[in-house]
Each structure stands twice: as C-alpha cells, then as structure tokens.
C-alpha cells in the first residue's frame, strides 16, 4: 500500500493538480481551470483519433501475427520452446530507440526494401514507405509484438493437452476443439496481450516521430512537445488525463465484450 501511495497516488494527484493550473512557465497557479481539458481535446482531436486508430490497428495486426506464433511455440515447440521465446524477446536486448532508428534506415527511400518494392512495381517510382501511416503502424506493431506474444504463450502453454484430447474424444474435430476449448481457455492471454500492446501503443510517440511526419503524429507526440518543448504543463497534464480516461473506457468495453467471468474463470 505504501508503494502504491508513493509511486501511483502521489504522482497522480500532482498531475491532476497541474492539469487544473493556469499561467506560463515557470509560474503556474492552481485555479480549477477545467477549460484546459476542453481546449486540449478540441485542439488535438485529430491526434487523439489517430492514436486510438493506429494503436487499434497495430494491436489487431500484432494479435493476428502473435496468436499463431504463440500457438506454434506452445504446442509444437517441443524442447526448443525456450529458444523460440528467447528469439521473440531478443530485440529487447537492443534499446527501443535504436530499434526504431534501424527501421528508419530499413524503410528509407534509398533502402533495400523500398528499392525492391519499386523494382517489382508494388510501389510507384516515387513511392515511399517512410513517412506513411503504414510505416508508423508497422513500427508500433513490431515494437510491441513481444508484449502480445508472451502473455498469449503463457495462456496457451497452460491449456491442458488432455482437455484437447477430451474434446476429441467427444466428437470434436480439430477446428471445433480449437474454437470450443483452446480459444476460450486462451482468452485471458488475449486480454492481457491486447492491454499490454494497446495501452503503450496509444501513448507512443517514438514511432510517429521517427517513421512518420507531423501528419502521422499521435497524442504522445503532442504531450511530449507540450511538456518538453512548449513547457505548457497544464495542457500536457490535461491531455494525459484524457488519454488515460479514454484508454480506461476502451479497456472496460473490451473486457465486457470478452466476458469478465470467462477471464477470471470464476462465476456460475
């Protein structure tokens, strides 16, 4: 509880207070300035929408890639399981910024990938990858993929193979037994993976900054520049709260749709 108080409640209260202040750096005065919130939202609505959109697409793509991967490692990995998992998290040994910079090089206009795609006419002669929405979304997907794979793996690994045998004994073919047994039992992993990917992705600014242009900027970029460049702390704090609140609402809707009793396994 002391930890929670020190590292969560105190900063939150401080941030909340700041979001209601007014003035210019370095002199802010507390004044219940609720207008900070409405001003922030109306001024940066496109970035908000874009954040949710990019994070949502990246999460969906990550889930689509990770589920088969985690499934394969959990059920077919055999004694190489740990090696495969190590390979999944291997990129983490290089820092986030460097990895994203590497992608900047890979996707650059003079890079191999763009050259190849132009040669085979998938991209036009002046087509680009860098500075597009696709590049930003791909970057986010790539950077948060392990956060999706690991919880999925854990929940799939915990699915008792004897349950799949039992399903098969009870006339379920492979497709049905996946749909009725494996998938429902792995939903907690899906839930955890989606949260772990979506939440940081929605607040991400590195990918948009390095792989995109101001036209791809997300709310994270706005908050970052408000805090660090413009020193407009109250607006930045208000934006942070709005972001937090909208994520919370989305998470709750998502949890509802998956069924909370299924996730905790309790209930009648």
């Amino acid at each position: 509880m002391a930890w929670l108080l020190l590292f969560f409640v105190v900063p939150m209260v401080y941030l909340a207070k700041m979001s209601l202040e007014q003035g210019f750096f370095p002199l802010f005065t507390f004044s219940w300035a609720w207008s900070n919130f409405s001003d922030a939202v109306s001024a940066y609505r496109p970035q908000f929408v874009r954040s949710i959109e990019y994070a949502g697409i990246a999460t969906a793509v990550a889930l689509a890639i990770s589920y088969p991967l985690a499934y394969w490692i959990a059920f077919r990995g055999g004694r190489w399981k740990n090696l495969f998992l190590l390979l999944v998290i291997a990129p983490f040994f290089v820092t986030y910024l460097i990895r994203t910079l590497a992608w900047e090089t890979i996707l650059s206009d003079n890079g191999v990938v763009v050259g190849l795609l132009r040669d085979v006419h998938i991209l036009g002669a002046d087509g680009r990858l860098l500075a597009t929405s696709a590049a930003v979304i791909a970057g986010i997907t790539y950077n948060f993929l392990p956060f999706m794979v690991l919880p999925l793996y854990v929940s799939l690994e915990q699915v008792d193979p004897r349950l799949i045998e039992a399903a098969s004994d009870l006339y379920a073919n492979r497709v049905v037994s996946f749909a009725r047994v494996t998938l429902p039992l792995s939903l907690p992993g899906v839930f955890a993976g989606v949260l772990l990917t979506f939440i940081p992705a929605a607040g991400d600014f590195i990918n948009a900054q390095l792989l995109g242009t101001p036209r791809q900027y997300m709310i994270g970029n706005v908050i970052q520049s408000q805090f660090l460049s413009l020193r407009n702390y109250p607006t930045a704090a208000a934006l942070s709260f709005v972001l937090m609140g909208s994520i919370l609402v989305l998470v709750m809707i998502f949890a509802r749709s998956l069924g909370t009793d299924r996730l905790t396994g309790a209930g009648a």
Partner: peptide, 11 residues
C-alpha cells in the same frame, strides 16, 4: 473415455 485427470472443461 473417462480420463484419469477427468479433463473437465474448466470454462
């Protein structure tokens, strides 16, 4: 089959 572990579907 009645399995040794019962293998009831927990969900």
């Amino acid at each position: 089959t009645v399995f040794q572990s019962y293998a009831l579907f927990p969900h």
